[in-house]
Protein backbone atom coordinates (compact mmCIF):
# COMPACT_ATOMS: atom_id res chain seq x y z
CA UNK A 1 0.00 0.00 0.00
CA UNK A 2 1.87 3.05 -1.22
CA UNK A 3 1.08 6.19 0.69
CA UNK A 4 0.66 9.35 -1.33
CA UNK A 5 2.93 11.97 0.14
CA UNK A 6 0.93 15.05 0.98
CA UNK A 7 2.55 18.31 -0.07
CA UNK A 8 4.10 20.22 2.83
CA UNK A 9 2.62 23.46 1.49
CA UNK A 10 -0.91 23.46 0.12
CA UNK A 11 -2.17 26.66 -1.47
CA UNK A 12 -5.86 27.33 -1.86
CA UNK A 13 -7.53 30.27 -3.49
CA UNK A 14 -10.51 31.85 -1.75
CA UNK A 15 -12.54 34.86 -2.69
CA UNK A 16 -10.58 36.97 -0.16
CA UNK A 17 -7.11 35.84 -1.14
CA UNK A 18 -4.80 32.88 -0.74
CA UNK A 19 -4.76 30.28 2.00
CA UNK A 20 -1.37 28.65 2.75
CA UNK A 21 -1.73 25.37 4.65
CA UNK A 22 1.60 24.28 6.13
CA UNK A 23 1.75 20.58 7.05
CA UNK A 24 2.38 20.27 10.79
CA UNK A 25 3.93 16.80 10.62
CA UNK A 26 7.05 17.77 8.70
CA UNK A 27 10.05 19.71 10.03
CA UNK A 28 9.55 23.42 9.57
CA UNK A 29 12.83 23.70 7.68
CA UNK A 30 11.45 21.33 5.03
CA UNK A 31 8.26 23.38 4.86
CA UNK A 32 10.27 26.55 4.35
CA UNK A 33 12.31 25.13 1.49
CA UNK A 34 9.16 23.86 -0.20
CA UNK A 35 7.59 27.27 0.30
CA UNK A 36 10.66 28.94 -1.16
CA UNK A 37 10.50 26.67 -4.19
CA UNK A 38 6.83 27.32 -4.74
CA UNK A 39 7.19 31.09 -4.38
CA UNK A 40 10.21 31.25 -6.68
CA UNK A 41 8.79 29.05 -9.39
CA UNK A 42 5.48 29.40 -11.21
CA UNK A 43 6.28 33.07 -11.04
CA UNK A 44 3.56 34.10 -13.44
CA UNK A 45 1.03 32.91 -10.90
CA UNK A 46 2.25 35.35 -8.28
CA UNK A 47 2.69 38.45 -10.35
CA UNK A 48 -0.89 39.61 -10.06
CA UNK A 49 -2.61 42.37 -8.17
CA UNK A 50 -2.10 42.63 -4.40
CA UNK A 51 -3.40 39.50 -2.72
CA UNK A 52 -4.01 38.84 0.95
CA UNK A 53 -2.44 35.72 2.42
CA UNK A 54 -3.67 33.64 5.34
CA UNK A 55 -1.11 31.19 6.76
CA UNK A 56 -2.34 28.20 8.74
CA UNK A 57 0.23 26.25 10.80
CA UNK A 58 -2.05 23.46 12.03
CA UNK A 59 -0.92 22.20 15.41
CA UNK A 60 2.53 23.65 15.00
CA UNK A 61 3.83 26.71 16.78
CA UNK A 62 6.88 28.51 15.44
CA UNK A 63 9.65 30.65 16.87
CA UNK A 64 10.23 34.31 16.09
CA UNK A 65 13.23 33.35 13.96
CA UNK A 66 11.12 30.91 11.98
CA UNK A 67 8.47 33.55 11.49
CA UNK A 68 11.08 36.02 10.30
CA UNK A 69 12.46 33.51 7.80
CA UNK A 70 9.01 32.77 6.52
CA UNK A 71 8.15 36.44 6.10
CA UNK A 72 11.37 36.98 4.19
CA UNK A 73 10.38 34.30 1.71
CA UNK A 74 7.06 36.04 1.14
CA UNK A 75 8.73 39.43 0.74
CA UNK A 76 10.18 38.15 -2.54
CA UNK A 77 6.62 38.46 -3.90
CA UNK A 78 5.67 42.07 -3.38
CA UNK A 79 2.03 41.50 -4.23
CA UNK A 80 1.55 38.87 -1.48
CA UNK A 81 0.57 40.56 1.76
CA UNK A 82 0.48 38.43 4.86
CA UNK A 83 -2.80 39.08 6.56
CA UNK A 84 -2.60 36.54 9.37
CA UNK A 85 -0.63 33.58 10.75
CA UNK A 86 -2.64 31.09 12.77
CA UNK A 87 -2.18 27.86 14.67
CA UNK A 88 -5.04 25.42 15.18
CA UNK A 89 -7.64 25.81 17.92
CA UNK A 90 -6.86 29.42 18.59
CA UNK A 91 -3.41 28.63 20.02
CA UNK A 92 -0.92 31.46 19.67
CA UNK A 93 1.22 30.74 16.64
CA UNK A 94 4.45 31.68 18.40
CA UNK A 95 6.18 29.26 20.74
CA UNK A 96 6.34 30.70 24.18
CA UNK A 97 10.05 31.10 24.42
CA UNK A 98 10.15 32.55 27.85
CA UNK A 99 11.86 30.08 30.10
CA UNK A 100 11.68 26.39 30.16
CA UNK A 101 8.79 24.06 30.64
CA UNK A 102 8.77 21.69 33.58
CA UNK A 103 7.20 18.23 33.51
CA UNK A 104 7.25 15.51 36.16
CA UNK A 105 7.13 11.74 35.74
CA UNK A 106 9.02 8.70 34.54
CA UNK A 107 9.41 8.09 30.82
CA UNK A 108 9.25 4.31 30.66
CA UNK A 109 10.27 1.77 28.05
CA UNK A 110 8.20 2.25 24.91
CA UNK A 111 6.99 5.71 25.89
CA UNK A 112 7.80 8.84 23.93
CA UNK A 113 7.75 12.30 25.45
CA UNK A 114 7.63 14.94 22.73
CA UNK A 115 8.12 18.55 23.50
CA UNK A 116 8.63 21.91 21.85
CA UNK A 117 11.17 24.27 23.35
CA UNK A 118 13.37 23.64 26.36
CA UNK A 119 12.30 20.91 28.73
CA UNK A 120 13.03 20.27 32.38
CA UNK A 121 11.99 16.73 33.25
CA UNK A 122 11.66 15.89 36.92
CA UNK A 123 12.04 12.13 36.79
CA UNK A 124 13.88 9.36 35.01
CA UNK A 125 14.06 8.32 31.40
CA UNK A 126 14.33 4.55 31.47
CA UNK A 127 16.05 2.31 28.91
CA UNK A 128 13.72 2.05 25.92
CA UNK A 129 12.12 5.39 26.81
CA UNK A 130 12.43 8.33 24.46
CA UNK A 131 12.47 12.10 25.03
CA UNK A 132 12.44 14.43 22.05
CA UNK A 133 12.46 18.15 22.02
CA UNK A 134 13.07 20.92 19.55
CA UNK A 135 15.11 22.69 22.24
CA UNK A 136 17.36 21.53 25.06
CA UNK A 137 16.58 18.72 27.48
CA UNK A 138 17.42 18.82 31.17
CA UNK A 139 16.69 15.74 33.24
CA UNK A 140 16.58 16.05 37.00
CA UNK A 141 16.93 12.32 37.39
CA UNK A 142 18.59 9.47 35.54
CA UNK A 143 18.74 9.55 31.76
CA UNK A 144 19.05 5.90 30.77
CA UNK A 145 17.06 5.92 27.54
CA UNK A 146 17.21 7.96 24.38
CA UNK A 147 17.19 11.76 24.31
CA UNK A 148 16.98 13.84 21.16
CA UNK A 149 17.49 17.57 21.58
CA UNK A 150 17.27 20.12 18.79
CA UNK A 151 14.94 17.78 16.97
CA UNK A 152 14.28 20.25 14.18
CA UNK A 153 17.89 21.08 13.58
CA UNK A 154 18.86 23.37 16.46
CA UNK A 155 22.55 22.54 16.86
CA UNK A 156 22.94 24.72 19.93
CA UNK A 157 20.60 22.48 21.95
CA UNK A 158 22.13 20.56 24.84
CA UNK A 159 21.18 17.53 26.91
CA UNK A 160 21.93 17.49 30.62
CA UNK A 161 21.06 14.99 33.32
CA UNK A 162 21.81 14.36 36.98
CA UNK A 163 22.90 10.93 35.90
CA UNK A 164 23.77 10.75 32.23
CA UNK A 165 23.78 7.09 31.20
CA UNK A 166 21.78 7.15 27.99
CA UNK A 167 21.47 4.31 25.51
CA UNK A 168 21.78 6.94 22.80
CA UNK A 169 21.91 10.70 22.43
CA UNK A 170 20.93 12.78 19.46
CA UNK A 171 21.41 16.49 18.94
CA UNK A 172 20.01 17.92 15.72
CA UNK A 173 21.05 15.33 13.12
CA UNK A 174 23.97 13.83 15.03
CA UNK A 175 23.72 10.49 16.80
CA UNK A 176 26.04 9.31 19.55
CA UNK A 177 26.10 5.95 21.20
CA UNK A 178 27.73 5.72 24.59
CA UNK A 179 29.59 4.15 26.17
CA UNK A 180 31.61 2.86 23.19
CA UNK A 181 31.94 6.41 22.00
CA UNK A 182 32.75 8.03 25.30
CA UNK A 183 34.86 7.32 28.27
CA UNK A 184 32.66 6.06 31.14
CA UNK A 185 34.60 8.10 33.67
CA UNK A 186 33.30 11.23 31.96
CA UNK A 187 29.73 10.41 32.83
CA UNK A 188 29.82 10.40 36.62
CA UNK A 189 28.08 13.34 38.25
CA UNK A 190 26.16 16.10 36.52
CA UNK A 191 27.10 16.27 32.87
CA UNK A 192 25.79 17.71 29.69
CA UNK A 193 26.14 16.78 26.05
CA UNK A 194 26.52 19.29 23.25
CA UNK A 195 27.43 19.45 19.62
CA UNK A 196 30.93 20.49 18.55
CA UNK A 197 32.42 20.04 15.06
CA UNK A 198 29.59 17.76 14.07
CA UNK A 199 30.14 15.43 17.02
CA UNK A 200 28.52 15.04 20.39
CA UNK A 201 30.80 15.80 23.31
CA UNK A 202 30.17 15.44 27.02
CA UNK A 203 31.45 17.74 29.67
CA UNK A 204 30.98 18.65 33.30
CA UNK A 205 28.20 21.09 33.99
CA UNK A 206 30.53 23.81 35.24
CA UNK A 207 32.00 24.07 31.74
CA UNK A 208 28.73 25.15 30.22
CA UNK A 209 29.27 28.91 30.24
CA UNK A 210 32.58 28.43 28.47
CA UNK A 211 31.06 26.19 25.80
CA UNK A 212 27.81 28.12 25.42
CA UNK A 213 28.71 31.74 26.11
CA UNK A 214 25.16 32.79 25.25
CA UNK A 215 24.00 31.25 28.52
CA UNK A 216 24.58 33.99 31.06
CA UNK A 217 27.02 33.13 33.75
CA UNK A 218 26.01 33.90 37.28
CA UNK A 219 28.56 35.79 39.36
CA UNK A 220 28.48 36.98 42.91
CA UNK A 221 28.69 40.77 42.80
CA UNK A 222 27.93 41.43 46.43
CA UNK A 223 31.45 41.67 47.79
CA UNK A 224 33.70 43.63 45.54
CA UNK A 225 37.30 43.75 46.52
Amino acid sequence: MGKVLRPGVTIKGTKDGLLFLLDESRPFSAILSELKYKLENASNLWDGPDTRVWIKLGNRQITREEEKEMRELFSARKNLIIHSIEAANGKPYLVDNRGIQMLAGTVRSGQVLEHRGDLLLLGDVNPGGNVRSTGSIFVLGALRGLAHAGGEGDESAIIAASSLHPTQLRIAEVVSRPPDEWDESETSGMNFAYLVNGQIAVDKMHQISRIRPDIHEWKDHRFKA
Binding site: R108, S109, G110, Q111, N126, G128
Partner: peptide, 10 residues
Protein backbone atom coordinates in the same frame (compact mmCIF):
# COMPACT_ATOMS: atom_id res chain seq x y z
CA UNK B 1 13.26 -5.21 33.63
CA UNK B 2 12.89 -3.48 30.28
CA UNK B 3 9.67 -5.38 29.61
CA UNK B 4 8.42 -4.83 33.14
CA UNK B 5 9.00 -1.11 32.64
CA UNK B 6 6.98 -1.18 29.44
CA UNK B 7 4.18 -2.96 31.27
CA UNK B 8 4.21 -0.47 34.15
CA UNK B 9 3.81 2.31 31.59
CA UNK B 10 0.88 0.50 29.97
Amino acid sequence: IRDADRVVGL
